[in-house]
Computed example of a mutant assay.
Amino acid sequence: MTEDSDRLIRDPKGGLPRLLEIMRRLRDPKTGCPWDIEQDFRSIAPYTIEEAYEVADAIEREAWDELEGELGDLLLQSVYHAQMGEEAGLFDFHSVADRVSDKMVARHPHVFGAEDREKSAEQQTRDWETIKAAERAGKEARGVLDDVALALPALTRAVKLQKRAARVGFDWPETAQVIDKIVEEAQELVEARETLSDAEVFEEFGDLLFVVANLARHLKIEPEEALRAANAKFTRRFNGIEARLAAMGKRPEDSDLAEMDALWDAVKAEEEAPDQTGR
């Protein structure tokens, strides 16, 4: 521990060097925090995922006053992993930053290279995927699906797996075929309820979700975003049910399905009615 270290840590304008020094001190095997010293990549990974979701949540709620803090928490996770990487002789924060900078330059030849910048977003996306495919080809030979991250949310990973398979021609050519498959899988699930074991019902339900994710891909819908929107709508409308019951001096547990269903319809109708401007 040095005076320079202490001075930097206590500098409210110390920026990134301050954060890096704080993490170094927290992980110091002699003078650091016992909890922080005990952590490793695997134990910290769940916190990294959680912080990323909290960033997304703040954006979804347009909680701009919270976003700065949530982004700081997410940055801390990168700093944490980088410090552990440095201790293990694997990498450090600066090499991590250099690597992602190299990647961004390589993947944007229309900005940092000689390629024409005047291209559509769709064309840029295709070019991005082509560059990524070339990067993968330069690595040790692997299966088509091998580097789709296991830790992704299952719905997101399903779409990424399907996109990767589609690049080599394993895909339904028409959206109607996907819908037909959803009908088929739903029917199998109905039949499974009556004839199959719990494990087989579980499998059939997974198959149905997987095909629904495929439909989202064909419709160019991000399924995680669509489901978040549906969750928000359900929450908003159920809150409306609770408000109307409260006005009657009741709680949901004092009501029944028929009454709550009628209130749901009322909330829905109110949401969908045009406002007084006619919109």
Score class of each variant (00 low, 15 high):
residue 110 H to M: 09
residue 73 D to A: 10
residue 11 D to F: 02
residue 4 D to I: 06
residue 269 A to C: 02
residue 50 E to Y: 06
residue 276 Q to I: 13
residue 257 L to F: 10
residue 200 E to I: 07
residue 38 E to F: 10
residue 221 I to Y: 02
residue 226 A to Y: 02
residue 18 R to W: 05
residue 53 Y to C: 13
residue 261 D to I: 03
residue 275 D to S: 10
residue 246 A to M: 06
residue 274 P to M: 09
residue 79 V to S: 03
residue 229 A to D: 15
residue 145 L to V: 08
residue 276 Q to R: 13
residue 147 D to W: 14
residue 220 K to I: 04
residue 221 I to W: 06
residue 231 N to W: 12
residue 242 E to G: 00
residue 150 L to N: 13
residue 36 D to I: 09
residue 240 G to R: 06
residue 32 G to A: 00
residue 26 L to K: 02
residue 43 S to V: 06
residue 109 P to V: 00
residue 126 R to I: 03
residue 274 P to V: 05
residue 193 R to S: 11
residue 239 N to W: 03
residue 177 Q to M: 04
residue 119 K to E: 05
residue 255 S to L: 13
residue 33 C to L: 15
residue 6 D to H: 13
residue 16 L to S: 03
residue 262 A to K: 12
residue 249 G to P: 00
residue 2 T to E: 14
residue 136 R to T: 11
residue 45 A to R: 11
residue 30 K to W: 09
residue 125 T to N: 13
residue 226 A to M: 04
residue 159 V to M: 10
residue 180 D to I: 12
residue 146 D to Y: 10
residue 263 L to Y: 03
residue 127 D to L: 01
residue 145 L to A: 05
residue 181 K to D: 07
residue 263 L to K: 09
residue 23 M to P: 04
residue 25 R to M: 09
residue 12 P to D: 01
residue 50 E to W: 06
residue 153 P to N: 09
residue 36 D to T: 12
residue 116 D to K: 05
residue 50 E to K: 09
residue 120 S to T: 14
residue 44 I to K: 06
residue 126 R to S: 08
residue 18 R to A: 01
residue 186 A to D: 03
residue 6 D to F: 15
residue 37 I to H: 07
residue 254 D to E: 15
residue 164 R to L: 11
residue 91 F to C: 10
residue 271 E to W: 06
residue 109 P to C: 02
residue 132 K to M: 06
residue 129 E to Y: 07
residue 142 R to L: 09
residue 274 P to N: 11
residue 29 P to N: 06
residue 254 D to Q: 14
residue 110 H to S: 08
residue 240 G to F: 02
residue 140 E to F: 00
residue 215 L to F: 08
residue 212 V to H: 12
residue 27 R to M: 08
residue 272 E to D: 14
residue 91 F to A: 08
residue 43 S to W: 08
residue 118 E to T: 08
residue 76 L to F: 11
residue 238 F to P: 01
residue 279 R to F: 04
residue 201 V to M: 02
residue 97 A to I: 10
residue 216 A to Q: 04
residue 241 I to N: 05
residue 109 P to H: 00
residue 45 A to T: 13
residue 254 D to Y: 12
